[in-house]
Amino acid sequence: MSDPILRLDGVYTNIAQYHILQGVDLEVPRGAVTMLLGRNGVGKTTTLRTVIGHWRAHKGTVTFDGEDITRKPTPAIARAGLGFVPEDMGVFADLTVEENMVLAAVSGPIDSARLDWVFTIFPPLKTFWKSEAGTLSGGQKQMLSIARVMIEDRKLYLIDEPTKGLAPAIITTMARALKDLKEQGASILLVEQNFAVAKALGDTANVMDDGRMIWSGQMAELATNAALQEQLMGLSLDAH
């Protein structure tokens, strides 16, 4: 098996007086979708934000593509090839859809073929290309948020709850987009509460509780084992 694209070894992260991550170990294999699961408040978002450098690990190491990025500033981590979709989508409301996309194309002008591909996945973005992002619906904002990381090739995509609070129709669109990305051989670390999406996309799964990783294995194994789901998360994911 090849080196993982991302590896966390004994990562501890504190936010003010709160000890959020308490020794997280995680491996994200190349060219696969890795699910990060767990109840609310167990540290999933903090794990992603620690990887991108928004919060600093005060102990442990984060290795990305063979390089220690634990102490690197966020822009350097992003330029190393990490695309990040935050839980709050992070769209620039006063900028147009076009300007949001231009900004996301860090290495130069937008590649038109790639943009066409994005438009086939998210047609509303073409319709509202000149509109301010703040005027979009919640679902369209999420499309824009994901489209921004898709507009350039990234070594790893960190995506935090892309279906949160969305209508079923939009969830289908999001899942299709992530499936397209997966079929292109992308490496994705995905935090997701929607089990149907997690089951459809995930190759491997990691379950967190209380700031630690309590289980890692194949998504298929977790999806078919109700007792394991109950044991890890206190509920059956199928009933979710």
């Binding site: 991108i52 966020t74 992003a78 900004l103 860090v106």
Partner: peptide, 24 residues
């Protein structure tokens, strides 16, 4: 200009501008 775009975006959400790779 792109610099202007970065400034306008940075005024709204500096953290996200950095996550895109710009040194704010």
């Amino acid at each position: 200009t792109k610099i202007g775009l970065i400034v306008r975006a940075g005024v709204q959400n500096g953290e996200m501008v950095e996550a895109l790779g710009y040194r704010l």
